[in-house]
Design a protein around this nucleic acid. Structure first.
Length: 518
RNA sequence: GGCCCGUUCGUCUAGGGGUCUAGGACAUCUCCCUUUCACGGAGGAAACACGGGUUCGAUUCCCGUACGGGCUACCA
């Protein structure tokens, strides 16, 4: 009988969810869905000092925005509730497991004060040890249930002395485990310190908590970031000492997301520095009021964001680049997850958005554009520029020239507003007084012409040009500037047709007026 | 420093002993399309970190070196 696949994303609510965290959640989700399993969200709030209000809600909102649906967890509950470790602590489960380890001789009470720990480290450093550890060799000099008599320990415990429970890691023992992505990993236990399992405030550390919960929640695959690889051997040991090796999930350590430039992993600072979001959603730090921008507010489609993220460290083994969530689910596999870290490229992220923008139906883009136009330009409801036909036409003119919906109005402002100024460089370069009669008769011609379609205008402009012994090429650029104020932009004829006869005539008159005034 | 993990175009990556004259995408360059700018089309430049093995043959396997990353807390 094969167990039902169950994965979990278990973030710590210490701030907004980093895009690397979203990717970890995504891979957990994809793997679970692919195998018809469950995906859980567990909140690992065991560090009360780092707890940030609002972070948990942010995480849930971010995952929801991404389309990463949760089967069980803080937001939806489930058979293994509660899903918040601070609440699970009340169940006494962590202490129970920690004490079980003490009883079977694989963990011990340690009463050392912070000062004593500090002294120990300094002693070791002075002795030439670069990385001082609380381990098999140093613990013999410390205040713990291994060095104290049973009576002393009991009396300290009864007196309510502060203590932690540490894992008793043996020395010189090879610990091997199989990582789904990396294969066999072997570490000598001498490299592992006696990790704190239960803190003096009664809270478990991550090391103990994730194991207890993974077992209790019947997690089959623990998929997490590479930063956990060095402590994985300690986790293996805990499972072993708990007699739970058969229940141990398979571990998969994902490669990290690296900075677009320079060295190191992607951090919040890179976003500020290079001008791209590092977080899925906007986040305002409750303590400092500082705002970190999110992909959502930048105008990214969640589908584009997720697609981009999926391809950072994973590939389908084919040349396909655009995936729906369904396709990601059906094609995801650890065999195609990279081992090396992936440098994040903000340019490619934009490209993904552009691809998704083009897939949007014109009518929907127009509808959303309407909201933006109303907001910014505040037209009357009956204004022609708010009509669906006008807006859809705007979209058609601009759709393939932008990467974000917000750019439509930004780049196409002149489709809504009569220009207040004209591109001087083009005027200087192209304008000749001799052209004036042409523009005047073109204005008249347009005014009296019934056919205001792009092709109709094309014919009209060309014939008027011919009548003035001009070639179309000579005046087109000027016409563009007169109509839009700018030297470049959307298709000129399409733009004139969209604007309508009245507006075109108005703009042409304004332009000629402007020339005369100079 | 120690330990662990990694290393194919600038970037994300395909490829897992002969098919590699190393494929795709982003970015970049050139040309075409075009009234402009884009889009689109065509093309170009661009990579197996290095040194040893193993092998008839290594981008692919092994070992070193270099480089990069992570970890080295009563944080996760």
């Amino acid at each position: 009988m094969t167990k039902k696949i169950r994965t979990r994303f278990a973030p710590s609510p210490t701030g907004p969810l980093h895009m690397g965290g979203v990717r970890t959640a995504l891979f957990n989700f994809l793997f679970a869905r692919k195998h018809g399993g469950d995906f859980l969200l567990r909140i690992e709030d065991t560090d009360q000092n780092r707890y940030v209000p609002g972070a948990e809600a942010y995480i849930i909102e971010a995952l929801t925005w991404c389309g990463i649906t949760i089967d069980e967890g803080v937001s939806v509950n489930g058979p293994f509730a509660p899903y918040r470790q601070s609440e699970r602590k009340e169940l006494g489960i962590y202490k129970e497991y920690a004490e079980k380890l003490v009883k079977n001789g694989h963990a011990y009470y340690a009463f050392d004060t912070p000062v004593e720990l500090e002294n120990m480290r300094n002693r070791l450093i002075n002795a030439g040890n670069v990385a001082p550890q609380y381990n098999a060799s140093s613990r013999v000099n410390m205040v713990n249930s291994l060095t104290l008599s049973a009576e002393e320990v009991t009396s300290k415990l009864n007196a309510g002395d502060s203590y932690v429970i540490r894992l008793k890691v043996p020395s010189g023992e090879d610990i091997a485990f199989t990582d789904i992505i990396r294969g066999e990993v072997i570490v000598n236990s001498s490299q592992v310190d006696d990790k704190v399992l239960l803190k003096s405030d009664g809270m478990p550390t991550y090391h103990l908590a994730h194991i207890v919960d993974d077992v209790l929640m019947e997690i089959t695959h623990a998929i997490r970031g590479e930063e956990w690889l060095p402590s994985a051997p300690a986790h293996i040991l805990i499972y072993r000492y708990l007699g739970l090796e058969k229940e141990m999930p398979q571990y998969a350590h994902l490669p990290l997301l690296l900075k677009p430039d320079g060295n190191g992993k992607l951090s919040k600072r890179d976003g500020d520095r290079l001008g791209f979001p590092v977080f899925p959603l906007n986040w305002t730090d409750p303590a400092t009021g500082e705002l970190s921008s999110g992909y959502r507010e930048r105008g990214y489609y969640p589908e584009a964001f997720v697609n981009m993220l999926a391809l950072l460290g994973w590939n389908p083994g084919t040349e396909q680049e655009l995936f729906t969530m369904e396709e990601l689910i059906s094609q995801f596999s650890f065999e195609h997850v990279h081992k090396g870290g992936a440098r994040f490229d903000p340019e490619k992220a934009k490209w993904f958005n552009e691809q998704y923008l083009r897939k949007q139906p014109d009518e929907q883009l127009a509808l959303r554009l309407k909201g933006a136009v109303q907001n910014e330009l505040g037209y009357e409801k009956s204004d022609r520029r708010l009509s669906e036909s006008f807006l859809v036409h705007v979209i058609q003119l601009l759709k393939e020239r932008v990467q974000f919906e917000t750019e439509v109005l930004e780049k196409g402002r002149y489709l809504f507003e009569t220009p207040a100024s004209y591109d001087q460089a083009t005027l200087d370069k192209k304008w000749k007084p001799a052209y004036q009669p042409f523009f005047e008769s073109l204005t008249t011609a347009i005014k009296s012409n019934a056919d205001h379609t792009a092709t109709g205008l094309d014919v009209l402009i060309k014939s008027t040009a011919t009548a003035h012994q001009l070639k179309a090429g000579e005046i087109m650029q000027l016409l563009r500037v007169f109509i839009s104020g700018q030297s470049m932009g959307v298709d000129l004829l399409g733009m004139m047709s969209l604007l309508g006869k009245e507006e075109v005539v108005l703009r042409l008159n304004n332009a000629v007026q402007m020339i005369n005034d100079k």
